[in-house]
Structures are given as structure tokens and as C-alpha cells.
């Protein structure tokens, strides 16, 4: 096809313009998709994991369930896997922080979850190595738990004890009925009754300890009073939180640990619930093609 020089020039211009526009669009596209906001500062955090079980570059980072960033790089070193996280917001880690790799769905995929820790704990000092925990494989944990419960039930544990107790109880009532032992005799013979009469007679006369107790003599009372005082002191010590028992009662650490465990279990359940839309969406998506 013949083209004059002007036409040729316009071809060059049009082609050039087209190429420029597309490259511009491509650039914009790239920036949008790379999820890096070029115009706001990024906050980096290096976390050392013992192992990450398939966490990959580009996986998401969640703080309080909000997607705040990505895993930028992963490096395997002597002391573990160094994961560089880049986030839109700075995180303030407290001493009881917890960073873990969490499976994002049953279908696979992982994300990093950061719990900054409670506000009343001191912040982490500068330059501390931040350590993270490997993925809590909650399905495996669940299985483990169920197994432990079953073992304790079956393997001579609780059930066995219970059975033994029942047997003892049965024997005891048997012996009671047969009039064996003191209580048995109490129920079946009247010799004790006569003795009791004798004892009450002696009590009346102020004989023996009990007799003394009831008689005007107050030595026993003094002793008792001292004992009560000592007991009171012990109780106070416990109350002040001293000694093992005291700690057990006063310190809420154990309680908190238990509470935290409960929280985690709840989080795991929540995670499971969260992933449900993803799962159903994926199945629809793949079903459509």
C-alpha cells in the first residue's frame, strides 16, 4: 500500500502514541497490583521463625484480623527463617506479643498473624530479635486433644478410678450392714450405748479432757485459743500471696494462661469460620470453569 510522507508520519505518531499509552497503562497496572503504596511509608519488621511450613513470599500479614501487609522476603539462616514483613501501619509489640503462621484455609495457603500483646506490659526493647511461632496446625492439635481425652477415659485413668471408688463404696455399705467396725457396731449393738451413758456420767463429773473442757477449768480453752491464732496467721500469709499456695490463690498468671489458651482456641475456630467464604467462593469459581 502506497503511503505519502505525511501518512507515514501519522503512522509513526499513532503507533508511538499507542505504545506509550499502553506502557503507561501497564505501569499503572503494575503499581496497583503490586499492592505497594508508593506514596505512604512502609513499616518493615523482621521475624525469625523456627520453621514456616510453606509460608511464601507475598502472603498476607494480619493484625487484629486486618490485612495490613505482605511477607516481602524469606531467608533461611542458621537460627531460623528470617521473614521480612512489610506493613502499612507500625506495630507496637509488647512483651507478651505473639506472631504465628496460620493456615488461611483448608485448601492451603498461609498468613502471618501478629498479636501485639497487652497494653499494660512493657514494650519490646529496641533491637530485640522478634521470634515467631510456626504454624499451629489446628486440625492436628484438635486431633491431639481428642486423643488425650480418650486415653484418659479408656486407659485406666478417670474411669478406672471411678470404678474402684464404686467398689469401695459397695464394700463399705456391705460391712456397715453386717455390723462390722465401729459404726456398724453402733448401728447393731447396744454395748456402745451403755458405754456412752457411762461417758456422759463421767463428763458430768468433770473427768478427762472433755470433762475438763466442760468444767470451769480453762487451760484447754487457752490452748485452743493459741491454735486458732496460729491458724489465723497462716491464713493471712496465704492471703498475702506468699508461698506456693498463696501464689496459686493470689497470682492471676495461671488464670491468664488458661484464659489465653481459651482465646486461642476461639481464634482458631474464628479462623475456620473466616475461611469458609473463601472455600465456597473457590469451589464456585473453579466449578464455573
Amino acid at each position: 500500500m502506497k503511503r505519502t510522507r505525511v501518512q507515514q508520519l501519522s503512522v509513526e505518531v499513532v503507533v508511538g502514541f499507542f505504545v506509550m499509552m499502553i506502557l503507561l497503562a501497564l505501569g499503572t497496572f503494575t503499581i496497583i497490583l503490586s499492592q505497594d503504596n508508593l506514596f505512604s511509608t512502609q513499616h518493615n519488621l523482621t521475624v525469625v521463625f523456627d520453621q514456616v511450613t510453606g509460608l511464601i513470599k507475598g502472603d498476607k500479614v494480619y493484625v487484629k484480623g486486618v490485612d495490613v501487609g505482605r511477607v516481602k522476603s524469606l531467608q533461611v539462616q542458621r537460627d531460623g527463617v528470617h521473614a521480612l514483613l512489610t506493613m502499612d501501619y507500625p506495630v507496637e509489640l509488647r512483651e507478651d506479643y505473639r506472631i504465628s503462621v496460620v493456615p488461611s484455609s483448608v485448601l492451603g495457603g498461609k498468613f502471618v498473624e501478629i498479636r501485639e500483646g497487652s497494653d499494660d506490659r512493657p514494650p519490646l526493647p529496641e533491637g530485640t530479635t522478634v521470634r515467631g511461632q510456626g504454624p499451629a496446625d489446628f486440625i492436628a492439635e484438635l486431633t491431639e486433644g481428642v486423643k488425650a481425652v480418650r486415653e484418659s477415659l479408656e486407659g485406666g485413668g478417670v474411669l478406672g478410678n471411678l470404678e474402684e471408688t464404686m467398689a469401695n463404696l459397695k464394700e463399705l455399705t456391705q460391712r456397715l450392714r453386717d455390723g462390722e467396725g465401729t459404726i456398724g457396731k453402733l448401728l447393731t449393738e447396744d454395748a456402745l450405748y451403755t458405754n456412752l451413758l457411762a461417758v456422759s456420767a463421767r463428763l458430768e463429773q468433770g473427768q478427762g479432757t472433755l470433762g475438763k473442757l466442760l468444767s470451769p477449768d480453762d487451760t484447754l480453752y487457752q490452748d485452743l485459743s493459741a491454735t486458732v491464732a496460729a491458724l489465723k496467721e497462716t491464713a493471712e500469709t496465704v492471703n498475702r500471696g506468699e508461698g506456693t499456695l498463696g501464689k496459686l490463690i493470689k497470682d492471676d498468671g495461671v488464670y491468664k494462661q488458661v484464659d489465653g489458651l481459651m482465646g486461642e482456641i476461639r481464634a482458631a475456630v474464628d479462623d475456620l469460620r473466616e475461611t469458609t467464604p473463601v472455600v465456597s467462593f473457590s469451589s464456585i469459581f473453579f466449578g464455573a470453569f
Binding site: P277, S280, F281, I284, F285, G287, A288
Partner: peptide, 15 residues
């Protein structure tokens, strides 16, 4: 349209 109609049955059409 195709994926949207299908997803709408689950209320997930924003996907």
C-alpha cells in the same frame, strides 16, 4: 455476568 449470577446465589457477587 456468568460468575456473578452463580455467586449471587451465595451472596458473594462482590467477588
Amino acid at each position: 455476568l456468568q460468575t456473578g449470577l452463580e455467586l449471587r446465589r451465595f451472596g458473594l457477587q462482590q467477588n
